[in-house]
Nucleic acid binder design. Structure first.
Lengths: 116, 116
DNA sequence: AGGCTTAATCGCCTATCGGCGATGAACGAT
DNA sequence: ATCGTTCATCGCCGATAGGCGATTAAGCCT
C-alpha cells in the first residue's frame, strides 16, 4: 500500500511565517518572562531594572537578559532615564499578539521587528 | 538611595500560573509545530503520522516527538485506528489558547492537562 | 577627578531542545 | 507463524536556553 491518498493537496505554511509565529510565542514560553510581563502590566509607570529585579527575585543579569528578549519582539518598550532604563508594556503588541486561531487560519504573522 | 518607592505593592503572578502559561506558549514556540498545527487544521479528517511526515518532510521520529508535545497540551487529539494513530486539531483548545491580554490581565491560565 | 549607582555584556555551567537513525511493540494480512 | 506496516521510544549529537557572578560602560553627584 503506497498510494497518495491525500484529500486536499494542502501546501505547508511557509517556514518564514511559521518562524515568525514561533518567535512570538517563544517570548512568552518562559515562566519568568510571563511574570515580568504581568508585573509590568500591573504598574502605573515604567519600571527600572532594579525595581523589576526586586520584584522577580532573580539576579540582575538574568532579568536583564529576559528584558532584552521581551524588547526584541517589542513586547516591552524602553526609555533611558539618566543612567537607568525604564521598561513598560507595549499595549499595541499585546493587542497584536497572535492567537492559536491565527495560526490555525494561516493568517500572516505580525512582524515582531517592525511596528506592531 | 534605598527606599521602596513602589507604587502598587503588586504581588508577583504565582509561579504555577506562570508556568502553565509558559507551557501553552512553548507548544507553539517551534516553527515545525506551528506548521504541523496549521497543516492539521486545514485537513478535513484526522491524519495519520505517515501522512503528516510526508507533508512536513522531517524524520518520522522527529514528527512523532512534536506530536507528543502537541497532544500533551491537548492541542491535538489522537484516535488509534488499528496500528495507526489519527491526529486532529482540538478546536476547543484552539479557542481557549491564552492570549497576551490574558497574561497581562493576570487571568488564571487554562489547564493544559485537564479538559480545556 | 573620584566614587556611587545602574544596567548591559561576557564567560561559564548545566539542562533542555530539536534533529536523527535504530530499535521494538502492536496490529493486520497472508 | 511470519511478514509488512505503523508509530513510539531510546540514545546520540550539536545548538540553544536559562541561571549565575564578574566585569564594563555610562551617568550622576560631590
Amino acid at each position: 500500500m503506497n498510494d497518495e491518498g491525500v484529500v486536499g493537496v494542502a501546501e505547508l505554511l511557509d517556514r518564514t511565517t511559521a518562524q515568525t509565529y514561533a518567535s512570538w510565542f517563544r517570548a512568552l514560553a518562559d515562566p519568568t518572562r510571563v511574570q515580568i510581563v504581568e508585573y509590568l502590566a500591573r504598574q502605573a509607570q515604567a519600571m527600572s531594572v532594579r525595581e523589576i529585579v526586586a520584584a522577580i527575585g532573580l539576579a540582575q543579569s538574568t532579568v536583564s537578559q529576559h528584558l532584552k528578549i521581551l524588547t526584541e519582539v517589542r513586547f516591552v518598550l524602553v526609555e533611558p532615564i539618566g543612567t537607568a532604563r525604564h521598561y513598560r508594556i507595549n499595549d499595541a503588541c499585546v493587542d497584536c499578539f497572535p492567537s492559536a486561531a491565527d495560526v490555525v487560519m494561516g493568517r500572516p504573522a505580525p512582524n515582531p521587528n517592525g511596528a506592531c
